[in-house]
């Protein structure tokens, strides 16, 4: 079942059309990877899914993005609630300069979840969910910035899932990490997809091939091909996709 449906989505930075008529179904509890060369629009598309682009002046959106059948660009949409439902993990780990505990507790406190549930339980469940609990449980008061980069990124994932999102968007989540940390995050993604719908932008085609169920290939603001990952990397339909993933274009 599609969790998110983009329908003829166009996005403009001023006069520049960065996305052209993107239509895509993002399946629930699956990992969808978006690939393509720099500037192809994949990150712009990702940021359309939680309206992060709204904060950039001079931009404009046309078309629809349906989340569980509701258009997130419809007037009256509660953007704060949208971003609770659709969380984001960024390229560089960006923990707050606070303790590990406070980082994860931040969202639940803001949203008032702590009034209904035990905050410590939420923090533990989120850290376990992000496969970080065992490494930090003895010192939850340590400064988040003292963690390794890989741990910091998992902390950001814990922070994202602490507010119980339905979708997690990941924008190059491993590009600042070493190979071992990268594989850990990939393993974590496979576990997370049982509970969450994941969309990942990656420059690393092998990563897309390893981790995702579906892959979309963007080129100059267009979605050239969208297919099951195993088909995309063994027998893509479009010549441009073939050229890109075999390293002959891009």
């Amino acid at each position: 079942m599609a969790k998110i449906i983009a329908e003829r989505l166009n996005f403009y930075y001023g006069d520049f059309r960065a996305l052209a008529d993107i239509s895509m179904h993002i399946e629930e509890y699956q990992i969808t990877a978006l690939i393509g060369p720099s500037g192809c629009g994949k990150s712009t598309f990702l940021r359309c899914l939680d309206r992060m682009n709204d904060t950039i002046p001079g931009t404009r959106v046309e078309g629809k993005v349906w989340l569980d059948g509701q258009d997130i660009y419809a007037p009256g949409t509660d953007v704060v609630d949208l971003r609770r439902r659709v969380g984001m993990v960024f390229q560089r780990p960006n923990p707050f300069p606070q303790t590990v505990f406070d980082n994860v507790a931040f969202g639940p406190r803001v949203l008032g979840l702590h009034k209904k549930e035990n905050l410590a339980d939420i923090v533990e469940a989120s850290l376990r969910g992000a496969a970080l609990w065992d490494e930090v449980k003895d010192n939850l008061k340590q400064d988040a910035l003292s963690l390794s980069l890989g741990q910091q990124q998992r902390l950001c994932i814990a922070r994202a899932i602490a507010v119980r999102p339905e979708v997690i968007l990941m924008d190059e989540p491993c590009s600042a990490l070493d190979p071992i940390d990268t594989l850990e995050i990939e393993e974590l993604m496979r576990r997370l997809k049982v509970d969450y719908t994941i969309v990942i932008v990656t420059h690393n085609m092998q990563q897309a091939a390893r981790v995702s169920d579906w892959t979309g290939f963007f080129w100059l603001g267009r979605l050239v091909e969208f297919a099951a990952t195993q088909d995309m990397f063994t027998k893509p339909t479009h010549e441009l996709t073939e050229s890109y993933i075999t390293g002959r274009a891009g």
Partner: peptide, 9 residues
Amino acid sequence: QQPMAGDLR
């Protein structure tokens, strides 16, 4: 080299 698609085939 992690060949893909046509190259892999």
